[in-house]
Amino acid sequence: MRAPVVPPVRVALARTVGTLPRDPGRLAYEPKFDGHRMVLFRGAGDEVALQARSSRLVTAAFPDLAAAALALPEGTVLDGEVVVWTGGRTDFAAVQGRAAATPGRAPALARRLPASYAAFDVLAADGVDLRPRPYARRRERLVDLLDALGPPLQAVPMTTDPDTARDWFDTLPGIGVEGLVVKRLDEAYKGGARAWRKLRHTDTRDAVVVGFTGPAQRPAALVLVLPDDDTPVVSSPLTPPLRARAGAVLRTLPAGEGGTATAVGLGEVAYRSVPPALEVEVAQGTTRHTVTTVLRLKEGGGGGG
Rank of each mutant, 00 (worst) to 15 (best):
269 V>Y: 09
254 P>N: 03
190 K>R: 15
197 R>M: 15
217 Q>G: 10
150 G>Q: 05
170 D>R: 15
268 E>K: 12
256 G>V: 03
156 V>Y: 11
185 L>R: 13
156 V>I: 05
234 V>H: 08
262 T>W: 09
197 R>N: 06
190 K>H: 15
143 V>S: 09
142 L>G: 02
159 T>L: 06
219 P>G: 08
259 G>Y: 02
191 G>L: 08
213 T>M: 13
230 D>I: 09
173 P>Q: 13
139 R>K: 04
269 V>D: 07
256 G>I: 00
235 S>A: 08
223 V>K: 11
142 L>F: 03
233 V>A: 13
258 G>W: 02
189 Y>K: 09
192 G>Y: 07
172 L>M: 14
216 A>R: 08
230 D>K: 13
145 L>T: 00
168 W>F: 07
194 R>D: 03
263 A>S: 12
174 G>K: 11
234 V>E: 11
180 L>P: 00
263 A>Q: 14
247 G>H: 01
171 T>N: 09
164 T>M: 13
212 F>K: 03
267 G>C: 10
238 L>G: 04
224 L>C: 00
140 E>Y: 02
264 V>M: 03
184 R>E: 14
268 E>W: 02
182 V>R: 00
253 L>N: 07
269 V>S: 08
163 D>S: 05
270 A>S: 09
199 L>W: 13
186 D>Y: 02
148 A>C: 07
221 A>T: 05
229 D>K: 09
210 V>S: 11
222 L>F: 02
211 G>T: 04
245 R>N: 03
211 G>W: 01
195 A>T: 15
172 L>V: 01
218 R>K: 03
247 G>D: 11
265 G>I: 02
164 T>S: 08
271 Y>G: 08
250 L>C: 10
161 D>Q: 08
181 V>K: 00
249 V>I: 03
178 E>P: 00
224 L>Q: 11
190 K>I: 12
231 T>S: 10
236 S>C: 05
166 R>E: 11
168 W>K: 05
254 P>R: 12
197 R>G: 02
145 L>M: 04
217 Q>I: 07
200 R>W: 06
164 T>Y: 00
260 T>C: 08
212 F>L: 06
176 G>W: 14
154 Q>E: 15
206 D>C: 02
142 L>Q: 10
261 A>P: 10
174 G>N: 09
206 D>N: 13
244 A>C: 08
197 R>E: 15
166 R>C: 01
148 A>Y: 13
242 L>N: 01
159 T>P: 10
257 E>D: 14
159 T>Q: 08
185 L>K: 07
159 T>R: 14
209 V>N: 11
258 G>M: 04
237 P>Q: 00
188 A>N: 11
258 G>L: 06
140 E>W: 04
165 A>R: 06
195 A>F: 10
143 V>R: 15
254 P>V: 00
150 G>C: 06
168 W>D: 12
172 L>Y: 12
271 Y>R: 05
256 G>W: 06
154 Q>G: 06
176 G>L: 04
197 R>W: 15
188 A>C: 05
213 T>Q: 01
224 L>R: 04
212 F>P: 09
195 A>H: 14
243 R>K: 12
205 R>P: 00
194 R>W: 10
173 P>R: 14
205 R>M: 10
176 G>E: 12
144 D>I: 00
248 A>H: 05
208 V>K: 08
243 R>P: 11
255 A>Q: 09
218 R>V: 02
196 W>E: 04
150 G>I: 04
270 A>P: 00
